[in-house]
Simulated assay, not measured.
Amino acid sequence: MSQTLRHPEIVELARREGKVTVEGLARHFDVTLQTIRRDLAELAQTGQLERVHGGAVLPSGTSNIGYGERRRLQGDAKAAMARACAALIPHDAALFLAIGTSTEAVARELLRHRNLLVVTNNMNVANILVANPDCQIILAGGTIRRSDGGIVGTLAVQTIRQFKFDLAVIGCSGLDRDGDLLDFDLQEVGVNQAILAQSRQRILVADHSKFQRTAPVRLGSLSDLDVFVTDRALPPDLDRRCRDWGTRLVVTGPQDGEAEPD
């Protein structure tokens, strides 16, 4: 495959996986390590990727990728995480589902839950849950972001503060190596912080690509959460921190020492 054809595919792999490695790409394209290093250097020079030890990641930035594209990324992983998260949510519960494609996947897994009260600032979540006749849905007020159907702002925070939730399910745009949760929108972060403050149990659902992504606004820390549902094992140092903090890990994909499926 020519360089011209490899470059777009390398960027797409980075979008799907969060990170690409020199060795993995060399096997994928059946070319030498030196060839891949040149490819990554050129992609970094044009700003399409950012070089890291052993490979490359999507470049850091101050704006998220498009919502439609995020919906397509990690589809199988999100479905598995959503099933695991829904298994933690009992019938007869009051919960908050926040903005994000992962929380939309959780909503789809709640269509057979009974006697739910769901408050959300995600119009997509509300539309999904309409199909469950045994679910009362309350949509937070506020400003609608046309890009993703999210509702943010002071009115949304005021709505949230009227409730005390049994559980809250949130997502994030990035996860720093020290366990900080990161996002792009300061208003959305303010809403999520209010959600966490009003919830008895707090659940984060985020796939492994978030381990490699960064964003400029700090939402909180894994230490603030009760459960973290993800699709791959965390780096060892972060895994140890979660155990010290008492944050339960639910990993739906390969564990340490397990082979990934073909």
Rank of each mutant, 00 (worst) to 15 (best):
K19A: 11
T62R: 15
D76P: 03
G18K: 13
A79P: 00
Q45K: 15
N64E: 12
F96K: 14
V57F: 10
H28N: 09
A44R: 10
A84H: 03
L40K: 14
A79S: 13
R71N: 03
L40E: 08
N64A: 13
R15I: 01
V52C: 14
L40V: 09
R16H: 11
Y67M: 08
A80V: 01
F96H: 15
V57Q: 13
L88T: 03
H53C: 04
E12D: 04
E42V: 11
T46W: 02
V106D: 03
H91D: 15
R15D: 02
G75R: 15
N64D: 08
E104W: 12
V57K: 15
C85V: 11
K19Y: 11
A41Y: 11
G55P: 12
I36K: 10
I36A: 10
Q45E: 15
H113C: 00
I36S: 10
Q48D: 02
Q45I: 04
R38E: 02
T46G: 04
F96P: 02
K78A: 05
V118R: 08
A94P: 00
T21K: 12
E17C: 12
R70W: 05
M81R: 11
V57L: 11
E109K: 10
L73R: 11
A98Y: 13
D92V: 05
T21N: 07
I65K: 12
E23V: 15
I99T: 06
G54D: 12
A14G: 06
G47N: 05
T35P: 00
L40I: 12
L116E: 03
A14D: 07
F29W: 05
C85Y: 06
R72P: 00
A82V: 06
A94R: 09
G18Y: 12
G24P: 09
G55M: 15
A98E: 12
R70N: 01
A77F: 04
P59Q: 14
T46E: 08
A77C: 01
R70E: 00
V31P: 01
I65L: 12
T21I: 06
A87C: 02
S102H: 02
D30K: 14
A79M: 12
L95T: 07
L117C: 01
Q48Y: 02
D76V: 11
T32F: 03
K19S: 09
S102L: 01
Q34W: 07
R37Y: 04
L33D: 14
V31N: 06
E17T: 14
A80D: 06
R15V: 01
R27I: 05
C85S: 07
I36Y: 09
D76M: 10
L95R: 10
G68Q: 11
V57M: 09
M81T: 10
T46Y: 02
A93V: 02
L117W: 08
R112T: 09
G18I: 10
N115A: 04
R83Q: 05
R37Q: 09
H53Q: 13
L116D: 02
H53G: 05
D92M: 08
R38L: 04
A84W: 03
R71T: 06
K19Q: 14
D30S: 13
R108G: 01
L40Y: 12
A98C: 05
A98M: 03
K78F: 04
V119L: 08
V52Y: 15
E17I: 07
R83K: 09
H28W: 09
A98R: 13
Q45V: 08
R16K: 14
V52W: 15
